[in-house]
Computed example of a mutant assay.
Amino acid sequence: MDNSELTFRPARPGEQERILEIIGQAQAQMRAAGSDQWQDGYPARADIDADIARGAGHVLCRANGTIIAYGALFFDGEPSYATIRGAWTTAGDYVVLHRLAVADGEKCRGAATEFLRRTASLARRRGTPAFRVDTNFDNRPMLHLMEKEHFVYCGKIRCRNGERLAFEKRLLPPEKP
């Protein structure tokens, strides 16, 4: 994948249908793999609408504008991360990524990796020292991505419908503009 042709930006109103299509593809992939993650109607249209309204929803697009990945970035904390069975590697501010999904046809081509890298770059520019993610114990693609991108396993957190594995990556000092 030629990353120079990709755009990373906030999602816009009117893009929900494409985002939900991508999420539906991810749900089907998880279901086919036997995972319970995202099999209860989450994330739903209301979640994506709320992400976009808050400015948290982000997309990775091809040069022609086609959205190929979606995720929600939050810089104001995650309540379920306050209690962890284990320990975070950093204290203080962090970015958290939720709802990462990649379009069929783009999986295993670097889109998820690029989404993480662009998120980390944005966080560095904002002076945010850490990047946190949680996932289900059986989400093999995400677990592989965490290892590949050098996230550290920190422990387990409880979220809306169960326990999740929690990961963190320390970010280097802010990038120069």
Rank of each mutant, 00 (worst) to 15 (best):
R62D: 06
A69I: 07
R126V: 10
G65K: 03
V152N: 14
F74W: 10
M142T: 01
P129Q: 00
E106L: 03
A123L: 10
C108V: 11
R31I: 15
R126A: 11
R132L: 06
E149A: 13
Y94E: 05
N64H: 00
W38T: 00
R99G: 00
I84V: 12
E149K: 04
N136D: 06
A46T: 08
G105V: 02
D104Q: 09
A72F: 01
A50V: 02
V102G: 02
D134P: 12
P13R: 10
G110S: 06
G105L: 01
G77A: 09
T119L: 03
V133Q: 14
E106W: 12
I67A: 07
W88A: 01
E149L: 13
T66C: 11
I68C: 10
Q16W: 08
P43F: 05
T119C: 13
A123G: 08
L60P: 00
L100S: 01
R132F: 09
Y81V: 09
P43I: 13
Q25W: 15
V133N: 11
F74H: 12
G14M: 15
F74N: 11
Q16N: 07
N136R: 08
W38V: 00
D138E: 15
I52A: 03
W38K: 00
G14A: 14
Q39D: 10
P79V: 01
F151A: 09
Y81R: 03
A82G: 02
G105N: 00
T83A: 11
D49C: 03
G86H: 06
D138S: 05
D51E: 08
A130E: 04
E15F: 14
R62F: 11
V59R: 01
G55T: 05
G77C: 12
H98I: 14
A123P: 02
R12K: 14
L60N: 00
G110P: 10
Y70D: 02
A103T: 04
M146L: 05
L60F: 02
S121M: 02
I19A: 04
K148R: 15
P43S: 04
P129G: 04
N139T: 08
R85S: 15
H98W: 13
I52R: 01
D138M: 14
A56S: 11
Q29Y: 14
R132V: 07
Q27Y: 14
L116N: 03
I48D: 09
V95G: 01
A69H: 06
K107G: 07
G34A: 07
M146G: 13
E106N: 07
G34L: 08
R85T: 09
A69C: 13
R109K: 06
R62P: 06
L145A: 00
D51Q: 04
A53H: 11
V102M: 08
T90K: 06
Q37T: 08
